[in-house]
């Protein structure tokens, strides 16, 4: 049990619960709203993990298909459906890369795959700092285990709370915390290596999630 079924301090909790109940009952409008509100964010998450826009497209459709098929397993909790959806997205994106062994080639020999770089390079305006950052990010992602990358994706990039991530992943909150700690330790070891990143990463603003938290 995750022990995370309600958070009375959230004013929008009853709305989340209602949305969950509607989706669980197979309400088409509720599903449509889920798509309208979060498809962009799901796509971004998939693109971050897969590095290829075409794959991110496929993953986004697949995420919503899986969400529809699993609507019966939605828990009637007070947490936003967004976290449940993003957890599906993280897993589907990792599956997509794993299934075609793209993750490995993407992460370990990105330079040999011009398509991968090109997809991101478009976004990053070809600045040298961005290219370095991308290179470093790719190496860092490769250093993490799948469960670690999963919680980093959800808690750091998509800014889910521990409780949201825990419920969405079906693990205790402490597990989320310890995975994040492990990820941090691993990444520190990596950056302490012989070739430290030249760019101070904090100068780069985090891309804002396409939807603010709590938005339905």
């Amino acid at each position: 049990m995750t022990g995370v079924s309600s958070s009375p301090d959230r004013p929008d909790a009853p709305q989340h619960r209602a949305q969950r109940a509607l989706l669980r009952a197979g309400d088409h409008d509720a599903f449509g709203r889920l798509f309208a509100d979060h498809a962009d964010e799901v796509f971004s998450l998939a693109l971050r993990l897969t590095g290829l826009r075409a794959v991110a497209e496929d993953v986004t459709s697949e995420v919503y298909l899986v969400a529809w098929r699993r609507r019966h397993t939605v828990e009637l909790s007070d947490l936003p459906l967004r976290s449940w959806l993003l957890a599906i997205a993280a897993r589907q994106a990792m599956n997509a890369t794993r299934g075609i062994r793209r993750r490995r080639s993407f992460l370990h020999s990105g330079r040999a795959r011009p398509g991968v770089v090109a997809d991101f390079a478009d976004e990053t305006a070809g600045r040298l700092d961005d290219a370095r950052l991308l290179e470093r990010t790719r190496a860092a992602m490769a250093a993490l285990t799948r469960p670690e990358l999963e919680v980093v994706t959800l808690c750091v990039w998509s800014e889910l709370t521990y409780a949201e991530a825990a419920e969405a992943l079906g693990v205790p909150v402490g597990t989320v915390r310890s995975r994040l700690n492990r990820a941090r330790r691993r990444l520190r070891t990596l950056t302490a290596g012989p070739d430290p990143a030249p760019t101070p990463p904090s100068t780069r603003p985090a891309p804002a999630p396409t939807n603010p938290r709590g938005h339905r």
Partner: peptide, 18 residues
């Protein structure tokens, strides 16, 4: 703190909407 550090260590790749 942990996210802040992690964010520095592993910044999210920049993406755009579809």
């Amino acid at each position: 703190a942990p996210e802040q550090t992690l964010h520095d260590l592993l910044p999210a790749p920049v993406t755009t909407s579809p």
